[in-house]
């Protein structure tokens, strides 16, 4: 990282051969006011390890940013309440006072635009599948999906009916599968903790 920093610190070199009579073209020319404004608006590309504070105060603030981001993401997962069927009742019971999920930072949020996790709780039928896909795409990155219950995992007890989607992972990528019919609230909490571990493990990707 120091090497990269050293390269960035050196000024760019002038061209070697200059044509006689031609004006000296310096690589650094005065920027126009429009370009100055564009510089202010365009964020500089971020490369890990090259932040300004590392050059100014090397060795004093050595917090890995990706770890901070991962911890903050996992501690405040806001699920979109996507209660489809019977598992929704156990999901609500998990949010309530007996098995409180709020202590993990999990706040149920009705809107997909402001949520991190989608808990697919219940059977996904083929009539509902386009809506599920649309809701998944409406969620901003980073997003995760918890497939709660047997129906969302592989169709569950209704898998033999041809209007039922055999598992929600046929249309969206799933991160954590919570088995059960319906899973106990403790099992859903375990699913959330597993998702938190996964977020910590995957923080560099």
């Amino acid at each position: 990282m120091e090497q990269v920093a050293a390269e960035k610190a050196a000024p760019p070199a002038l061209p070697e051969k200059q044509v006689e009579g031609a004006p000296v073209v310096a690589p650094h020319r005065e920027r126009t006011s429009v370009e100055r404004e564009a510089d202010l608006l365009t964020p500089a590309p971020y490369e890990p390890g090259t932040a300004l504070y590392r050059q100014v105060l090397p060795g004093i603030i050595q917090v890995p940013v990706d770890a901070v981001l991962a911890v903050s993401r996992k501690s405040s997962l806001w699920p979109m309440t996507f209660g489809l069927a019977c598992c929704a009742i156990e999901m609500i019971a998990t949010f309530m006072s007996r098995h409180d999920l709020d202590r993990f930072g999990v706040v149920p949020w009705p809107s997909p635009r402001q949520s991190d996790v989608m808990i697919v709780s219940g059977t996904v039928t083929k009539k509902m599948a386009p809506a599920v896909k649309l809701l998944y795409e409406q969620m901003p990155n980073p997003k995760w999906v918890i497939s709660m219950g047997a129906c969302a995992t592989n169709g569950g007890p209704y898998t033999r009916y041809d209007r039922v989607l055999q598992g929600v992972d046929k249309i969206i990528p799933v991160d954590v599968y919570v088995p059960g019919c319906p899973p106990r609230p403790e099992a859903l909490m375990d699913g959330f903790l597993a998702l938190q571990e996964k977020i910590m493990e995957e923080r560099n990707k």
Binding site: Y136, R160, Y161, R163, L165, Q166, K170, P173
Partner: peptide, 28 residues
């Protein structure tokens, strides 16, 4: 569906990967 000549699927008859095109492109 409820007519007798429309049977239930066998467990082995999965719906296949026909629905999978969209799933692989998504990033986590």
């Amino acid at each position: 569906p409820l007519r007798k000549d429309n049977p239930l699927q066998e467990i082995e008859e999965w719906q296949g990967d026909s629905l999978r095109e969209g799933a692989g492109e998504e990033e986590e």
